[in-house]
Amino acid sequence: MLSLKNISKYHKAGSLKTTILNNINLDVDAGEFVSIMGPSGSGKSSLLNIIGMLDEPSEGYQYFLNEPVHQLKEKQRSALYKKNIGFVFQAYHLIDELNVYENIETPLLYQDVKAAERKALVADMLDRFQIVGKKDLFPSQLSGGQQQLVGIARALIVTPKLLLADEPTGNLNSKQGDEIMELFSKLNKEGMTIIQVTHSEKNAAYGSRIINLLDGTIESSKNI
């Protein structure tokens, strides 16, 4: 599904060069559930951002669905991730001014989906996550777990091939966190490829593979 070859990322501030990722090689197949772990500052989020095409590597080759991402133009890249990648954030990042229904609907707007089809898709998604009764509520009226549920629903609305999650349970209590991880696990069993960044051994254990990062390099990679 995706392949990273000799990917490096560094910042230059004056004469000081800070390396964030150093010569990363990584292949992820369809249907995998990968957990990226590592201490703070090891480059986990940067790696996830590059995989999600929100950020560009400084060097290296990157392929997604057999497309050479490093050769694509901004527009093509954006079109590629818009259709195929869903994002879930630690801080949920719902839009405060929109209600649950509208938050889930927003990605479809940016893909020019027709109104009737949008309605059907969002209704399906609300149904699937059992949040039909909450569709008119605003993010501030929801608990953290419910907000993250909406965040995941929003990520899935475009039926992505890959789901990226950056510490999806970081802001939740353990019960809510477990529920979210159960959901991920269920999604993975249904065929969704997932890559998550996490600090928690327990959450990492839900995945099929754990990658440990240290100072921008892959220290270990083991299948469970």
Binding site: K75, S78, Y81, I95, P107, Y110, V158
Partner: peptide, 16 residues
């Protein structure tokens, strides 16, 4: 800013 960030991640182009 956060709203802008989210919208961009959700696929919004600068134009929109």
């Amino acid at each position: 800013a956060r709203e802008v960030g989210v919208r961009k991640v959700l696929g919004a182009e600068k134009k929109s």
